[in-house]
Amino acid sequence: MIEAFVLILVIIMLAAALSALLLDNLIAATASASAVSIALATIFIILRAPDVAMTEAVVGTGLSSLILVLGLKRLKLWQLDTQSDNEEVK
């Protein structure tokens, strides 16, 4: 039972990690990176490390996503229309 739950969590985590690198939209890629962090926090709870899970959920998911999103706004890449990595934003 717990193996099936962990298997689903690991699959979600790897899919989010892949989509963080493959999605064209950088906002969605940042959200996928924070989804990796929140799945990792759940796995830490199953691994009997509740302190690490708390820190990962607060710092890894909250503060890291906040920093990345503020940097994205500062880089003037905060836009919802999809574009490729190679095109330049004016």
């Binding site: 963080a20 690198l21 890629a29 990176a33």
Partner: peptide, 18 residues
């Protein structure tokens, strides 16, 4: 090829190491 995506890859690798 994008510097911001390199940063996202760094975040993911760090999660794997943890």
């Amino acid at each position: 090829n994008n510097a911001y995506r390199v940063l996202l890859a760094l975040v993911i690798a760090e999660a794997g190491a943890n």
